[in-house]
Design a protein around this nucleic acid. Sequence first.
DNA 1: GGGAATCCTAGTGAATTGGTAGGGAACCAT
DNA 2: ATGGTTCCCTACCAATTCACTAGGATTCCC
Lengths: 152, 152
Amino acid sequence: MRISARADYAVRAALELAAAGEDTSLKAEAIAEAQGIPHKFLEGILGDLRRGGLVVSQRGGKGGYRLARPADSIPIADVIRVADGPLVSVRGVRPPDLSYIGPAQSLLPLWIAVRANVRKILGEVTLAHVAAAKLPDDVLSLADDPEAWTNP
Amino acid sequence: MRISARADYAVRAALELAAAGEDTSLKAEAIAEAQGIPHKFLEGILGDLRRGGLVVSQRGGKGGYRLARPADSIPIADVIRVADGPLVSVRGVRPPDLSYIGPAQSLLPLWIAVRANVRKILGEVTLAHVAAAKLPDDVLSLADDPEAWTNP
DNA sequence: GGGAATCCTAGTGAATTGGTAGGGAACCAT
DNA sequence: ATGGTTCCCTACCAATTCACTAGGATTCCC
């Protein structure tokens, strides 16, 4: 289960905008430098976020990007979907569109369960949560287990 | 969050072996046909499973592949790791090796929480569970929610 | 108008993913 | 021991992703 560079970069860029405040706009170059993201690559991602309605842009001398809505109304899941497509996919198709035969039939509900769990977390946590370093309690309790930080 | 074709194919192949029984061996071609997997591609995956100690192989006329251990002792997570590397990764690196700065710092515990949740499910469910279509209750209850089957 | 920034298109190269091809090596039965 | 069967290995191909570059058009503020 791989989270792509696009998704990671998109969330980090959105977090910079969240930290700046809803009515402060940042230039793509400033975000790129702050987060160590290739700046032209980031421009393409910010374009996706704009077309997805999550940020608004302004050209010209005092231009830049800012969030289109309050940071506490934007779940991480929304940012990932807009920048990178479906939250969870198997071979590029989303779980309900899969079809398995024989002894693999119960794989479908298994993937669905995994997706439900991922949705629960990424749909609950907002940009405001992460930017303020105040994750919800149920998420924090998952990350608090030292076991969760060990390798395999 | 994408589950690769390799991972999906590997699990499905292992499920065919689990359904066949621990001491019946199946030919790669038979598995490929049963699950609709490109057979030469599958051969490579089965080689990984063999090198990972999950299956044993036999060449020659009555050859094929069979599970190296009982199906109820092989979690799905093991199959995915052996065939496809780390269970969850961000941009190809596993969460504990990431480092974030500024307002993105709390992304790390967030990914850790997501990974912990995925591990919990895929580490608990075994090949025997899926092959017998008898998922554990906690997994089943996640998949039972009709909400979990809807698009975004 | 001029400068500054976004926006759009397009192209390049490396790495990964998904898939194919051919042949060598081992095994079993006759 | 020979032949057929099957695994096993290496190499190759195509598409996609990632990272980066270039150039120009558009829009905005001063």
